[in-house]
Amino acid sequence: MSAAAARPVIDAEDEARVRAALKALAAVPDPELPALTLADLGIVRFVSVREDGTLEVGLSPTYTGCPATDHIAELARRALEGAGVGAFSVRPVLAPAWSSDWITVEGRRKLEEYGIVPPSPAAASARTWRAAAVGLIVACPRCRSARTESISEFGSTPCKALHRCLDCLEPFERFKCI
């Protein structure tokens, strides 16, 4: 759990490797939401260079039980191999815990285009058991109506919840705010 083994980027070659790694990771699509990349989801925590020259890549899992987590790490490894960044290791970073607030502006735009309502700020979800953010409007991604209702706090993947539009009557998904 320590970052003690990291050293500052000292030469141009290291810097180029870190840049290449970040670029390669940024292009990896999420297996369940292929419209979004790992960078869009905000799960690439850091790329650092260890004493022995190994690149260390930290990825934040979104949900502890998300079946895509192992798959994402595997895709990241393949991308790094493809980018030829030399020796590297990929490890999960649990703390600070990933938050849906870390999804980038670009990521939110892509989610919306994909027909999934992006998450509201997680801080708005109260720290109690009571339903979060009373009065918060979740607009229908198809017809933009503000008249929608929650069907379930859970959805087809660990990161989504189900809603329904009361005007166009279509069900739709929303990213969970966590």
């Binding site: 759990m1 899992p61 949900y63 502890t64 649990l94 703390a95 600070p96 815990a97 990933w98 938050s99 979800s125 720290r127 058991w129 009571r130 339903a131 979060a132 706090e153 859970f154 969970k176 966590i178």
Partner: peptide, 24 residues
Amino acid sequence: DDRLAAIAEKAVKETRYHLRYSAG
């Protein structure tokens, strides 16, 4: 214990969400 603290930090968010569902 750092490791336990990290696991708890991750789990606490999910658990809050679970309670919202079950209590609801």
